[in-house]
Amino acid sequence: MKLEIKGLSKKYGDFQALKALNVEFTEGIYGILGPNGAGKSTFMNLLTDNLKRTAGEICLDGKEILSLGKEYRAKLGYMPQQQGFYEQFSAMEFLRYIGKLKGLKGRKLNGQIEELLTKVNLYEIRHSPMSSLSGGMRQRVLLAQALLGKPEIVIMDEPTAGLDPKERINIRNIVAEISKDKIVFIATHVVSDIECIASKVLLLKKGELIRMESPAGLIASVRGKAGEIPCTKEELQKLQEKYVTGNTIQRQEGLFFRIVGDDLPPEANVIWNNLTLEDVYMYYLEQS
């Protein structure tokens, strides 16, 4: 299975939200990283054909998804950014409703719903109305609906927004589990969401694809670009003013100010090991 994006652009009036994106995807988990307004949600909406593109093509196995229409959407699982629900529906009703819209019926639908509810740990409260569920539970219901119909392409827009660390780990584990033989997109600005599970990471900035590589490759690309400046509390404020995108770290040895960039100041200790995707994010996306 191959999903090709050719010259994909989206303009809102004069604002160019996505600039001629050219990229190919095969089975695997793709983390899409970028700050707010980078074009992540626009890209997701174009992939789900919820938004009209300005130019370009999206082809699945060589066929344009617009001409595939229903056939393409049958392979799609979508977990939107906001928790949109019919509040009075129970989790079961909601999943049945979406399942029917995905063309599932009878035992097949029931079987999948039960399986997914068990997987996301919501089987016990399946008949409770959505309004009574916590943010984490609602997010899990959304994940379950995205996985209904065993989709081959799963698109998740900010799947862990507003969740506590435990819920985040839960969702991450489920995604890792279901990703076999699927193209999974996870758009997020939370680096830890994709750090361990993404096979490739796309870095989007102001509508442009800055880089697309495996997490290891990306981390390697910032070797020698990160440094730490030991500082006192008094010095910290000055450093924060000087390096807007720096990160303060408290260790046993004292306070450090971690910065990334091509020209590190002489007082900074260059870090060669223990680099993270967060450094990659800061280097590529937060530097002006």
Binding site: T48, Y78, Q83, G84, F85, L101
Partner: peptide
């Protein structure tokens, strides 16, 4: 209630619905 995008991404969420 924010369901529109979700429904429209489903195979029967457009014409059929």
């Amino acid at each position: 209630c924010g369901m529109e995008k979700l429904m429209r991404a489903a195979p029967y969420g457009r014409e059929k619905l």
